[in-house]
């Protein structure tokens, strides 16, 4: 524990460089186009539009929502953040390789800066969501919205944890980036993005599989818990007909606190994993 605080003190000493790296990431991200931020949020919005088109026309449940696209968008924003932050950080250390071979710095500030710059972008993306919610859908702001900061904090911990592990492994193994990309492609379908987790939990197949454990394991996925939490704290529950007559489970503050704790533990463990390897990044005889 003492060693961990010493490492963090060293990060603090290098905060000026850390802030420059965050600025660099954001500048580069918004510089490549005239429209900057608007342009960089276009891909997830187009994805939501296409998913809405497909599901409203090809399935029966999507049309029963008051606003299906709000449900998809509330899941797509955190999912896009997770993906881009982890993929960006997988390259982050290699991009700075020529520097860290010559100049001392606590190496964790490199993936940390990527994680923070992506978090800033993520926070701004929610503004688009809330604008849509309030000005287009005229939806009420629910009191459970008070839990929203806890959710984004939990996700920040989780994303940073994943970024530290992936950025570190990617220095030693060249195929990490491809493996992560494949997993992310699967995530779009396995995570409750285009549907509700309750639909999986109530599905007869999942309930009979492994004596009901399959449904329980599905909700062990921290991202599934987060996505479900975002939706329940911001959006009114869908009409019971969406879930075949069952009411959606209400917002559960306990699960939010649980995910905050899990993400924090994951962050501490990932940081220790990173620290145990960071000195070997550049060492070559």
């Amino acid at each position: 524990m003492r060693q961990l605080t010493a490492e963090l003190a060293e990060v603090w000493r290098f905060r000026a460089l850390f802030l420059q790296l965050v600025r660099r990431d954001l500048k580069v991200r918004y510089k490549n186009s005239k429209l900057g931020f608007v342009w960089s949020i276009a891909p997830p919005l187009m994805q939501v539009a296409c998913i809405t088109f497909a599901f409203k026309n090809a399935t029966t449940f999507a049309a029963k929502f008051d606003s299906y696209s709000a449900y998809v968008l509330a899941a797509m924003i955190p999912w896009t953040y997770f993906q881009t932050a982890v993929l960006d950080s997988s390259q982050s250390i290699l991009m700075m390789y020529g520097v860290i071979r010559k100049v001392y710095m606590p190496r964790e500030i490199i993936p940390l800066a990527t994680s923070v710059s992506n978090f800033i972008h993520f926070a701004m993306s929610w503004l688009v969501f809330f604008a849509y919610l309030v000005f287009y859908l005229h939806a009420p702001l629910l009191p459970t919205l008070a839990w929203f900061p806890v959710l984004i904090l939990a996700q920040f911990f989780l994303v940073t944890a994943a970024s530290l592990v992936v950025s570190c492994l990617n220095v030693f193994y060249e195929d990490v980036k491809y493996i992560v990309t494949v997993l992310f492609n699967l995530g779009l379908f396995v995570l409750p993005i285009m549907y509700l987790p309750e639909q999986v939990l109530h599905s007869p197949t999942m309930q009979s599989l492994w004596g009901g454990w399959a449904a329980r394991i599905y909700m062990w996925n921290p991202l599934a818990v987060l996505i479900s939490g975002y939706r329940k704290c911001m959006l009114e529950p869908p009409h019971p007909s969406v879930l075949g007559g069952n009411a959606a489970t209400p917002f559960d503050p306990g699960s939010v606190l649980g995910i905050l704790g899990v993400s924090f533990v994951a962050l501490v463990l990932s940081y220790m994993f990173f620290n145990a390897r960071k000195w070997r990044f550049v060492e070559r005889p």
Binding site: R24, K27, K31, N32, Y97, G98, V99, R101
Partner: peptide
């Protein structure tokens, strides 16, 4: 540093001076 290390091609000279100086 070795040639080009620490610089970012998309940033201007001014921005790169700030970044490199911080490094």
């Amino acid at each position: 540093l070795e040639l080009g290390a620490g610089f970012h091609p998309d940033l201007t000279g001014v921005e790169n001076v700030e970044l490199y100086g911080a490094i």
